[in-house]
Lab assay of single mutants.
Amino acid sequence: RELRDAFREFDTNGDGRISVGELRAALKALLGERLSQREVDEILQDVDLNGDGLVDFEEFVRMMS
């Protein structure tokens, strides 16, 4: 339940997936600093298991585990 709530916080447009822009904004909020595009792309590449360029809830749960 906590992970579902956190996912909703990251998924600002409510489409059920976290985009690169949403991921960048969430990481900035969490870390208090802006990451480079390359750093965000590397994180997305590690987390995006199905290669669609987005983070779905299952991928998010794995990222947070």
Rank of each mutant, 00 (worst) to 15 (best):
G14S: 06
D11E: 00
N13W: 00
N50S: 09
L27R: 06
E22A: 03
G21S: 10
E33K: 13
M63T: 14
E9R: 14
S19Q: 01
S65Y: 11
E9S: 08
D46P: 04
A26V: 08
D5E: 10
A6L: 11
F10T: 07
D48L: 11
V40D: 13
S19P: 03
A29E: 08
D41M: 04
F7H: 00
S36P: 08
D48M: 13
G51N: 14
R62F: 05
E59R: 09
L54W: 03
G16S: 05
L31A: 15
G53R: 03
L23E: 01
D11W: 01
N13L: 00
L31Q: 14
G16C: 02
R17Y: 11
L30D: 08
S19V: 02
Q45K: 05
R38C: 09
R4E: 15
N13D: 11
S36E: 12
E58K: 14
E58R: 08
L44H: 14
V55D: 00
F60T: 04
V40G: 10
V47M: 04
M64L: 11
A29C: 04
D52P: 07
L44F: 13
T12K: 10
V61F: 07
N50C: 13
A25E: 14
E59A: 09
L54A: 05
V40Y: 08
E59Y: 07
G32F: 04
R38Y: 08
R34W: 01
S65T: 07
G14K: 12
F7T: 01
V40A: 12
L31F: 13
D5H: 07
L31S: 14
R4T: 07
R1I: 07
R1W: 08
L54G: 14
N50H: 06
R34I: 14
L3K: 01
E58N: 04
G32I: 03
L35N: 14
S19N: 13
L30R: 14
D11G: 02
F10P: 00
I18P: 00
F60E: 01
D41H: 03
D46Q: 07
L44V: 12
G53E: 06
I43R: 13
R8N: 11
R17P: 01
R34D: 15
E22M: 02
D11Y: 01
L23P: 01
V40Q: 13
L44R: 06
V55A: 06
V47H: 13
G32K: 05
E2F: 02
D11S: 01
Q45E: 09
A29M: 10
L54Q: 09
F60W: 11
D56S: 14
L30H: 11
E58Y: 03
E2G: 07
A25D: 13
V40M: 13
R8C: 07
S19H: 02
D41V: 05
D41S: 04
G51V: 12
V61C: 11
A26Y: 06
V61D: 12
G21I: 07
E42Y: 04
N50Y: 03
G21P: 13
Q45R: 13
V47W: 06
L35T: 12
E33R: 10
G21F: 14
D56Q: 07
Q37R: 09
Q45W: 08
F10L: 02
F7Y: 05
I18H: 00
D48T: 13
D56C: 04
V40L: 15
A29R: 13
D41C: 09
M63R: 03
E59M: 13
R8K: 09
A26T: 04
F60I: 15
R62L: 05
A26C: 15
G16F: 00
R4I: 08
G51Q: 11
D11T: 01
S36W: 06
S19W: 01
D46V: 03
V47R: 12
F60D: 01
F7A: 00
L31H: 11
A6E: 09
V61W: 08
M64H: 14
K28F: 04
D46T: 13
R1E: 15
N13P: 00
Q45S: 07
A6G: 03
F7Q: 00
L30I: 07
A6T: 15
L35I: 14
N50T: 11
S65F: 06
S36Q: 13
G14P: 01
D48W: 08
G51E: 15
A29I: 05
G21C: 05
A6H: 02
L30T: 11
M63L: 14
L31T: 14
Q37L: 11
V40C: 09
V55I: 06
D52F: 03
G53Y: 11
K28A: 15
V47S: 08
E58F: 03
D5M: 06
D46W: 02
F7C: 03
R38D: 14
L23A: 15
S19C: 04
D48I: 14
L27C: 12
D52W: 03
L23N: 05
R62D: 14
G14Y: 00
N13H: 01
A29L: 10
I18V: 10
A6F: 10
R17I: 07
A29Y: 05
E2K: 07
L3C: 00
G53I: 07
R34P: 12
M64R: 15
